[in-house]
Write a protein that binds this DNA or RNA. Sequence first.
DNA 1: AAATATACTATATATTTATACAGTATAATG
DNA 2: CATTATACTGTATAAATATATAGTATATTT
Lengths: 204, 204
Amino acid sequence: MKDITPQQQKVLDCIQVYINKTGFPPTRADICRELGFKSPNSAETHLRALEKKDFISIESGASRGISINNPEIKHEGNEYPIVGLVAAGSPTLASENVEKVLNCPKGFFGSDFDYFLRVRGLSMKDAGIMEDDLIAVKKTQEIKNGDIVIARIEDEVTVKYFQRSAPNIVHLKPANEEFNDIEVNLEETELYIEGKSVGLIREN
Amino acid sequence: MKDITPQQQKVLDCIQVYINKTGFPPTRADICRELGFKSPNSAETHLRALEKKDFISIESGASRGISINNPEIKHEGNEYPIVGLVAAGSPTLASENVEKVLNCPKGFFGSDFDYFLRVRGLSMKDAGIMEDDLIAVKKTQEIKNGDIVIARIEDEVTVKYFQRSAPNIVHLKPANEEFNDIEVNLEETELYIEGKSVGLIREN
DNA sequence: AAATATACTATATATTTATACAGTATAATG
DNA sequence: CATTATACTGTATAAATATATAGTATATTT
């Protein structure tokens, strides 16, 4: 796969999030609204770049004719991918990150979810989340204070409690005295919320 | 809500197939082309009917703003009882103790198991076992030191680490500093091992 | 018998949307 | 140093699209 620029990654994520949220792809104007661009041509040029690099396909002439190419692994039926260590900059569900799949009935955790994340480290120990546990992750941007989120800060993936302290300040709080809070200033640092935890499985 | 006419089913299938094929929903004209209609209003009225019956959602004003509402819910695998507070003297799996059943594929936890136990209290907190968690219990007498066991001492059910200290002395150790070890002298006290924990599920 | 839902054709139109064209600016490349 | 890629604003417009309105016809329900 070719290299993607940070802005192009943002646009690609934006398309994925939009599709997850609405069920259909965004227009150029939608992308501008989401990312703060003021000209539809900003979106257009990014889309053309993403198409050239083969990340997306664009159906010429059709409205909303965007589809994502390197399709994230779909859980068909009841198979959910188990994602381990996520390589820096790599889309979470890219096939190289999937260690195996787990068969799990729909509605198992009350809420829908998208994949399992294998936990590394003990930073959420006091929330009963231990090393090697599998967290059921729902890809969503709808996060409330106190939710356990899967966050990406500068290509590092981490599981923490989410707390928005001010419009531009987010605290990612561990559940373990030996770890420190992570304060994220959204104006300085890019924070991407992959989703939130809706359940947990421990195999032993 | 439930009943769908054959034509409406055709339109619904058409939408699903179109999304699978292209990655984005069809326009009215696309549906007409696929199904041989000659007026876009044929598609429109079917879409409105499907929306009214809650099979799809339509984003007003947006092109291709169709999303499918009801994903298929399949029931496969096996039903396992969830056991809550076990009344004194009552057989664990008696029907009055089963709060509900949970559908869970065979081999989910590597090992077979027999039922889920809903955890009360925080005595195993440091082992990542929290209140309301579901422990997958395998009914067995083959216990090794260090296993997490479900034990019954004089009609009280408890979850603890198992440690045999002497032929007739068993220690049931909590994973929480605020709780004390339970020392059981098998000559004095009756100890029944229900089984051991082979997995854990948390719904949140 | 009347009202309602289904199942279409046909035409019209306001709005949405993709996309081209004209610029500005910066960083990397060869 | 010219070229190319990135990263934008701003404006314009042809084409795509949703959707309303006007009909026809059949079956089902009240």
